[in-house]
Design a protein around this nucleic acid. Structure first.
Length: 342
DNA sequence: AACAGCGTCAACCGCATCCAC
DNA sequence: AGTGGATGCGGTTGACGCTGT
């Protein structure tokens, strides 16, 4: 007998979320924090299944999400990480905290795959024309990033080095030089969505000024930080102006939802530190790293072990070196390894 | 202007994994 | 150790918008 569905299919709404539903969901999560998704539809009256609520939150409403316009640096990181981890989108997303796994997956499938294919075919074509020159190009670009280790070591899940993505180093460089007509500019959908929610809120707040969400949007962020379980009783010093679009955006921003962040980022921290795939990769790579590390690396690994913090993985060091030290990655490394990297 | 084809991306589905009991 | 529920993840789908004819 198969497993029962995660929710009753009858009476469950499907398809795109409305701004009203978004408001209800955000309001509920603001009050209770993410998690216990099963309870969300029951407690909010949303005619959505728990999965759908979770997905909507993690992929769309969660604070700190950046949409559209992938930067060349992000592209490079995705290409690298995809080559290294395979289609472990959640793991990849943990290195790009502002991006969701869904976003990255979509971007990979719609943009990067094609780009790499194009580049690969160009490389192949070039190789046929000038095999000697091409060997030099590939040789130098790969060795740039792999030092003395084999490609197989760099991309442990790959067996077939002919896979286009196994040439990530090459393609990354190629991508940088070709430099992208980059990126769909589809942030507009989100923007218009939040505008809609903002507009809806205007009317909604007029009728229910005492609502939790009204408290949320008018309460100074420090109050919320200090009173993570809602703190509805401390709204002195803030007026109750209607919510502007900008204000709504700021509500959804990372900084102003700190009280939820601890919980809402459970997903991201999960993928940062606890996700099995990352754990596996980190473990593998740490042992690999230990084998080849110089004194500095060994120091870092030892320090991580002694402080019980996830070690700065070989992957991260490699990415940092490779990606010209993206700020996000650096920040993440500081998070993971609160030890001096000197 | 109407239509077809294509690209994009939000959302769904089903399986995997985790976790409490 | 086994079981079942909850959650996470990755592949896929379908609606929608854009572009070319």
């Amino acid at each position: 007998m198969g497993r029962p569905p995660c929710c009753e299919k009858v009476g469950i709404k499907k398809g795109p979320w409305t701004p009203e539903e978004d408001i209800i969901l955000v309001s509920y999560i603001q009050e209770h924090g993410p998690g216990n998704w099963r309870a969300v539809p029951a407690n909010t009256g949303l005619l959505r299944c728990s999965k759908s609520c979770r997905l909507r939150w993690t992929n769309y409403l969660r604070p700190g999400i950046k949409r559209g316009n992938f930067t060349p640096h992000e592209e490079g990181m995705i290409i690298h990480l995809q080559a290294l981890l395979g289609n472990k989108w959640a793991a990849i997303a943990s290195y790009l905290p502002q991006r969701t796994d869904n976003d990255i997956k979509n971007y990979w499938n719609t943009h990067l795959k094609k780009k790499l294919k194009k580049i690969q075919s160009a490389v192949d074509h070039h190789q046929q024309q000038q095999p000697q020159a091409q060997n030099n190009i590939l040789g130098s670009s790969i060795s740039d990033s792999t030092t003395s280790n084999s490609t197989h070591h760099q991309y442990p899940h790959r067996n077939n080095v002919n896979d286009i993505t196994s040439h990530a180093s090459t393609t990354t460089l190629s991508l940088r030089s070709i430099n992208q007509s980059s990126s769909s500019s589809s942030g507009g959908i989100y923007a218009s969505s939040t505008e809609n929610i903002s507009r809806l809120l205007e009317g909604w707040m007029r009728t229910s000024p005492k609502s939790t969400y009204a408290n949320l949007v008018t309460k100074p962020s420090h109050d919320r930080e200090e009173n993570p379980k809602g703190g509805q009783d401390q709204d002195e010093g803030c007026d109750h102006d209607l919510l502007s679009h900008e204000a709504f955006q700021s509500i959804l921003s990372f900084d102003n939802l700190n009280n939820v962040n601890a919980a809402s980022w459970d997903r991201s921290s999960t993928t940062n530190c606890d996700s099995s795939s990352i754990k596996q990769v980190s473990q593998t790579q740490c042992s690999t790293a230990a084998a080849i590390a110089n004194e500095k690396d060994k120091h870092i690994i030892r320090a991580c072990e002694s402080t019980n913090t996830p070690p700065l993985s070989f992957l991260e060091k490699w990415l940092l070196d490779e990606s010209a030290a993206g700020q996000v990655l650096e920040d993440r490394m500081m998070e993971l390894s609160p030890i001096s990297l000197v």
